[in-house]
Amino acid sequence: MLVLDDIDRRLLDLYQRDLPLVARPFAAMAEAVGVGEDIVLARLARLSEAGVISRIGAVFRPHRCGHSTLAAMAVPAERLEEVAAVVSAYPQVNHNYQRDHTLNLWFVIAAADAAEVAAVMTEIKDRTGIAVLDLPLIEDFHIDLGFDIRWS
């Protein structure tokens, strides 16, 4: 695992919430952290390559562009690989997790409209013969998706 130094940590602490929307954002970040723009670019490239940063860009609010839902299935253990592969193959599925519960497969379906989301859900149910629980977002209580990183 990559060893993160103080510059890396400060970049993550400061910019997991808001990257400045200015012509030269990395120069602005460099000034805030007290290093050169080239250093910031190099650090961000390294952190991205190492997978510490998954993406540098816009985080969209769910439901604000297109339609999405959280879906859950109770898949028998011996069919998990097969069913997970069916689910993951849909381009409309952008997250798919195995979780430790009877409902062991959890995934997000996102598409341009509700009809397409429903169609994907129906197709998964028909192809696998397993019910798909539909858990769309009703209310989002969180304001800032940033996250308090505990470095120790």
Binding site: L12, Q16, L19, L21, I56, A58, V59, R61, F147, I149
Partner: peptide
């Protein structure tokens, strides 16, 4: 481009523009 991103931010469509950490990779 920046004006459009700002508008999407103001309307709430974009929650934030950020370096999104991978929690798993951070341990």
């Amino acid at each position: 481009a920046m004006a459009r991103l700002r508008r999407m931010q103001d309307s709430g469509a974009i929650r934030r523009i950020a370096a999104v950490p991978n929690h798993y990779a951070l341990g």
